[in-house]
Amino acid sequence: MVGETRSPGLHSLMRLPFYLLALTVLFPYYWMVTSAFKPLGEITKAPPTLIVQDPTLKNFYNAKYAPGVSDQIQGLFQRFTGTGFLGFFANSFAITVFVTVASLIIASAAGYVLAKHKFPGSRIVFLLIIGSMMIPWQVTIIPNFLTMRDFGWINTYWALLIPGLAKAFAVFFLIQSIRGVPDELIDAARIDGAGEVRIWWQIVLPLVRPALAAMAIFVSLGEWNNFLWPLLVVNDDAHVTLPLALGRLAGSLTADPRAAGPIMAATLLASVPTLIFFLVFQRQFVSGITVGSLKG
């Protein structure tokens, strides 16, 4: 127990319901993994098997698949024309990396100026940024959709890359951190002849690295899972992101439950990168998630 570290914890019997709750948290993952390796006959067996009887990789790729032959499962990597599932993966990956890196560069530059410089209107800009965080982002989707249409950006990467760069919350968060950088350090650098760009890039950014890391996790997780915006601006196959592809696959589940195998294979592959990411950056992840919930 926290707070009262010296007092004995809850009696283990009283913890039992919470262990059961933990099992229910894990269960969807278990079901995802096992379903991904079940052959066609087993996936629609009632009652379902808790342990895979006859594991198969056909849900990922079925070498023997031929169109028109019944009782054949079309592997995940065979289901889409064009770049296919790997293409969706690459789209999501590239978009996430670009938006995370670019939006943090832009936000940290703005954050530095707003934290360490006073100029006419700086207070208003700061208040506008805070104020915009109170507004549900759905308010902006219709005008932004229209902007994309007018720019001719529907079904292009521009629509997936550019509007996402305006991250007011990142600026707000970084302003808080950059204020903690001592003015003396910045003054000393100035006396040594460093320009503003160098102070921002070489003095300030290294000192706020934990905040940048937390923000990077938060932004990249949001981009990786972004669903509504791509849903609005993409309706061809070439620019489909992973969440969009998963959404379409999930939709087809209603019509054809036998597709569950390849769909679970897709969800499994989509979850692996975030899990690896989590294992590598555990500490930053917790702060990234918690700053994330700060977003209004």
């Binding site: 269960f27 969807p28 669903f227 569950a260 969800t267 975030t274």
Partner: peptide, 16 residues
């Protein structure tokens, strides 16, 4: 961590 659309597809399958 590993949530998002992927796990909603799994839920849809669980709730078949």
């Amino acid at each position: 961590v590993a949530g998002g659309i992927a796990i909603l597809a799994v839920w849809k399958w669980i709730l078949n």
